[in-house]
Design a binder for these strands. Structure first.
Lengths: 400, 400
DNA sequence: CGATTCTAGTCAGGAGCCTTGCCTGGAACG
DNA sequence: CGTTCCAGGCAAGGCTCCTGACTAGAATCG
């Protein structure tokens, strides 16, 4: 498919990638351990380590503990150099902003959060975002007390491959450059720009905000923004295990309405990133009328006065569950018709509570599909963002 | 990502793949031309040709015409050996069955067709499928009059990598083994088995049929079956040009109802392959009632008596176009909500005729999306099947 | 018609990446 | 204190690629 001309170099790059990925899994290994783990010869492993150390990606940890099973000569342990950088995982919702800095191993090395009183204004949220980003930049990571690192190759000098603004140095005190940021926002996200978009009549919780502009000064690399439901769906997929759930829909029913569609194992975002914006989907309204999903909540008086959000408390206490169940059933029918999922997963603050009502209305569905509540309930969005951030960081390191 | 251990062999396979793909584009080249076309050295090109000839994939054409610009020594031209095989492109519809045999360059080397009187019974269609497959197997290809080929290496002896039934020899008289078959059927197709499935109340034109079982004896490789609308959408995508249309929906409105969804440049098939089965989608029915799309046609008396097909002629002459337009508009609203297409392409025997009515009803849509008639009108399904068959054949040849 | 020109293909030499096999150094075991 | 065991380095060899020089043979020129 794509040409790879300088050929022998290709083999070397495969080897180096193998070494890097193996050290991402095992944290620290001797060259002999690397060789047997990867399945290459010791000289090859040694050469690769030498190259990668020279590029500043690997470092001798200084440890000289005996290799593995007690006997034998002590080995030199190598690990990824802290200079490979870190990732930012950020969630933005109306309740507040949470940001974490992750290292290559997926560990959270720093965390910052800001709560915001409801109703939140967009400028408050932007300020909170800026605050957590600044706090994480200034916070020293907990590790890096391992001892002096000798290999101080040309680090950071030749690494500006994204042309971002370099005024504010995008690194914490510990030298952990932030190479990638992955952001969740509780509103629809434009795929190309990363800006939040306000769809007419839809809940708009976070409000007009450009996370890329706010975070770019803190990141020496890409800033990825997507809808919170998409990230939650990714976490749900990963929680099931590899290949377990390649085609499903994640229906989020809370203050906002959202839906993620996973097809062939990947989130499907569509042209503008607005796949799964179900607010305007036509479904079964009161009296069997064809009604837009979002209009139902207006008709039933279930939206917060003055805002676009759904009043979850009132919904759970006073609403006609049969009517709601029928409407959600219509949405599920559309999902089955157009996305053909293996399962429909229901999440959000009120969706799982109405699961029975939804199920009993699913007779509209053209065929039987499992409808179940989300398995991850703790912080599914943050889990998905973390996984994506870690993935992006590792890809950025491995791919040159 | 995926491990590739025996490493230097990887470089060689890249080179060989390059040579094969280049000869698929240029039909015949000397070793020197190959080298400069690919950007490798002459000795490397020569070695690769030697290897591939030994494996029976390449053959000296016997031509000794001077190389290119008149002067100089004459070169030996090499081309893909006819033994690399051919592909079958098959379309199955209620009107009849068409099958073509394609060579590796995408040329149609043989064609067979059977028309069937309406209404067609499944056994008639199965018989027609068997008939065209047999006819194509027995027909000699038009080429292969080029002269004696000397390099008669071990061909076909070590090539049975699919374990298919070898009773009926899956090759025509010219030795062109059929390595892959791509089949279109005018009904929903189960992704895993390739069988046609009957969804309750939906049009079922071809009827219960197992194309894989019928065609397997004729094919020394995979038989791929999919819905005709999906293939038409692929042809539409390719007709626009690379990267032009990565996210769109193809709405087929004819005797049957179908919809293909292309996302990130690929057809999305879903868990069972029933993505886009819009018959049971809830839309706007007469009087604003929430109605399943397919039920509308029953209510309006637009289905053929005794069958499940839609009566297109009556629809075009007598039906209430505003009602139909509104219903289709509701379907488009669902497509926009759940698939976020760049465009919605309308095809089929009656869809384009109602384009204005559909457009004027698209006020239900949450945002403006281009709605247009299909650009390919000739034989879009066959075009898509051909492209897929050619692709599969080439992949089968290159990938070992 | 012979000399010249031009190109396809081959050969020799060398570089890079990998492997196997052997040797050395040094810690732990008994 | 000798034995055992393992990390790491070295040497030799194989495979793939490349460059540059050479050979072979047809078309063109004078």
């Amino acid at each position: 498919m794509d040409s790879a001309k300088p050929s022998l170099e290709l083999v070397r790059s495969v080897t180096d990638e193998h070494v890097l990925r193996t050290l991402m899994r095992h944290r620290r290994l001797t060259r002999a351990e690397l060789a047997s783990e990867i399945g290459i010869s010791k000289p090859t492993a040694g050469e690769s380590v030498r190259r990668l150390t020279e590029r500043g990606l690997l470092a001798d940890t200084g440890e000289r503990t005996p290799g593995g099973r007690g006997r034998g000569r002590v080995g030199s342990y190598y690990a990824l150099d802290p200079g490979v950088g870190a990732a930012l995982a950020v969630t933005i919702a109306a309740e507040g902003v949470v940001a974490e800095r992750l290292d290559v191993y997926g560990d959270t090395v720093a965390r910052a959060a800001r709560q915001i009183d409801r109703p939140a204004r967009p400028d408050q949220i932007a300020a909170a975002l800026l605050a957590v980003a600044t706090e994480l930049r200034d916070a020293a990571g907990p590790r890096d007390a391992a001892g002096p690192r000798d290999a101080t190759g040309p680090r950071g000098a030749t690494n500006s491959r994204d042309g971002g603004p370099r005024d504010a140095e995008p690194r914490g005190d510990d030298g952990q450059t932030v190479r990638v940021a992955v952001v969740s926002a509780a509103d629809p996200v434009d795929r190309a720009s990363g800006r939040l978009v306000h769809l007419p009549d839809s809940p708009f919780l976070v409000g007009d905000l450009d996370p890329v502009a706010v975070l770019a000064p803190f990141v020496d690399g890409a800033v990825v923004v997507d809808n919170d439901v998409n990230w939650a769906a990714l976490a749900e997929r990963d929680s099931v295990g590899a290949d377990g759930l390649r085609d499903f829909a994640y229906l989020y029913l809370g203050e906002g309405l959202g839906c993620a569609i996973v097809n062939d194992g990947e989130i499907r975002r569509g042209r503008t990133g607005l796949t799964g914006e179900i607010a305007h989907l036509i479904t079964i309204g009161p009296g069997g009328r064809a009604t837009r999903f979002i209009e139902l909540f207006g008709e039933l008086g279930l939206r917060h006065a003055g805002t676009t959000a759904i009043d979850v408390e009132r919904l759970l206490t006073t609403a006609d569950r049969a009517v709601l169940g029928a409407a959600v059933g219509g949405v599920i029918a559309a999902l089955i018709a157009l996305a053909d999922p293996q399962e429909v997963v229901i999440g959000g603050s009120w969706g799982p509570a109405l699961l029975d009502d939804i199920r009993s209305a699913a007779t509209w569905a053209p065929r039987d599909v499992t409808v179940r509540a989300a398995g991850l309930t703790e912080t599914p969005v943050l889990a998905g963002v973390r996984a994506a951030a870690l993935n992006s960081l590792r890809r950025a390191i491995v791919g040159r």
